[in-house]
Each structure stands twice: as C-alpha cells, then as structure tokens.
C-alpha cells in the first residue's frame, strides 16, 4: 500500500499534490492522468469522485464533475479503473468525494473497495468532526482508512488542536474562505493565517489547498506548510492542452 505517511517521512517540504476529477476529460482518462502525473513526479494524487452537487467546489470542478458524469462515470467504474493500475502505480492516491456518495454506496462496501484499490486516505469535505467522532472514526479504523480534516481561516485554535489529535495523515489547510478555484496571488491576510498555523507547531503535516494555481502560489504556500495541492488550475490545463501535456504543467510548477 502506498501510504501518504511514507511521503512525509522522506520529504518534509515542497510536497506537490494534484487534484483531478475521475473520468475527465474522457471517461478512460482516470488511468492516464495518474500515469502522467506519476511520470512527472508529483508526490501524491487526489482523485476526485464526481458528484452532482459539490457544495465546496467552484465552477471549474463543478463543470469537470458534470462532464465526467455525462461521460458515464460512477463509483464502480472509478474503482475498476483504480484496480487496473494498483500494481503499477507507485504514487499514493487519496480519494476526495462527498459523504452522500459513500452513504448510498454502502459505507462498508465503499471502505472495502477503497482498501482493495490500495488507498488508505479519504477527504470528505462535508464530513464534520462530530460525525467523525460519533461514527466514522470507528468505521474507518476497521479498514485502516485515514480521514483528512480541513481547517480554514475561521477555525479556532482549540478546534485545530482537536483536529490535529484526530489526524493521522495530514491536515488540509484551506487557503482562504472560499470554495475551490484559482484566485491569483496570495494576500497578506492569508500569509498571516499561514503563519499563525505554522507557529502552532502541530504534530500533523500541513498541506495547503484551494486557490493554489502556479509556481508562485505553490512556493509561497510551501514556505508555511509541508506542501500544497493544485486542483482547478490543473483541470483547466488538461481541458485546454490534453492529458499528454501534463509533464509541462508540473515542470512549470516545480521550476
């Protein structure tokens, strides 16, 4: 199993993660996007499970999800696609979706499939901490699955400490009060927030996401966290340039 934890054991800074939507731009692209990202040397990959009503996502991910659903993607197909690359892919994968997808699929069945695909980390933006404590913690532990919590500029220090205690993987630091999508440069206000979290000296690794789009925002974020996640900008890139140009996008970020 390619665990996210191993990444941070060997690499403590400049960890680059890419989010993409499964089944986008074409149904069969899930596999090729992962392969190209691995070739380009990203540290871990977030596979987005397309959802009809993605509340935390901006227009780019909404549109890619809608197109993927029109392409005919569903959870069974995503799991099948991930199974076929399980033995060749060495880059850790994280699944990102909405709680209702897991609920309807069957919580145990969903977790078993995740584990079967060699994945041990989930990001469910609408899973609140109280529900995690009361129910999902036990479920995930049964399958060895780690849940990634999000923190935001509004999250209080006390709550961040509690989230830190619960986190077994990394903390997803939402860069600003926003939904996903490119925002341009990072503001002083955001830097103050990054600084505040950095100075808390949490046990968990920190990865910044939402609004990270290019080499400038990536390296800025990495001054305060162990790494950063790029999503919408990457989706826009592959829509315009095609999956085979992924190396170019990653090289530009890493320049």
């Amino acid at each position: 199993m390619n665990s996210i934890k191993n990444i941070f054991q060997t690499k403590n800074s400049q960890v680059l993660s890419i989010y993409f939507t499964a089944g986008f731009p074409n149904l069969e692209d899930t596999k090729s996007v992962i392969q190209e990202l691995e070739k380009a040397g990203v540290d871990f990959i977030e596979v987005g499970l397309p959802y009809s009503d993605p509340l935390a996502d901006g227009p780019t991910i909404q549109n890619s999800s809608q197109k993927a659903l029109q392409n005919g993607i569903n959870l069974d197909i995503v799991f099948e696609q991930l199974m076929t690359i399980k033995n060749t892919n060495k880059t850790p994968l994280v699944l990102m979706g909405y709680l209702n997808q897991m609920l309807k699929y069957g919580e145990d069945k969903f977790c078993q499939k995740v584990v079967d695909c060699g994945i041990d980390t989930l990001i469910l933006p609408d899973l609140p901490m109280v529900e995690y404590e009361n129910h999902y913690k036990q479920l995930f532990e049964k399958y060895g699955i780690k849940n990634v919590f999000l923190i935001t500029p509004q999250t209080t220090d006390d709550r961040i400490k509690k989230i830190d205690d619960f986190s077994e993987s990394f903390i997803y630091m939402v860069a600003s009060s926003s939904i996903t999508g490119a925002k341009g440069e990072i503001s002083q206000q955001q830097i103050d927030y990054f600084q505040r979290i950095k100075s808390m000296n949490l046990k968990s690794k920190l990865v910044i996401g939402f609004g990270i789009s290019d080499s400038s925002t990536f390296s800025k974020a990495c001054e305060y966290a162990n790494g950063a996640i790029i999503g919408s900008a990457f989706i826009n890139f592959i829509e315009e340039n095609g999956v085979d140009k992924i190396g170019q996008f990653i090289n530009k970020i890493r320049k």
């Binding site: 959802y51 009809s52 659903l69 569903n74 069974d76 909405y98 209702n100 997808q101 897991m102 609920l103």
Partner: peptide, 21 residues
C-alpha cells in the same frame, strides 16, 4: 427517495444508486 444528505442535512433524498442527486 432514500436516506441521503442534501444541503447539510441527512434526510430522504431523490438520488440514483450512486448517491447522485
């Protein structure tokens, strides 16, 4: 509908077999 989550609430929801609303 069946049990599902919409707009922050667990309720009865019209959805397909994969939880798409």
């Amino acid at each position: 509908g069946q049990v599902g989550i919409i707009h922050g609430s667990k309720t009865i929801l019209m959805q397909d077999e994969y939880g798409q609303i």
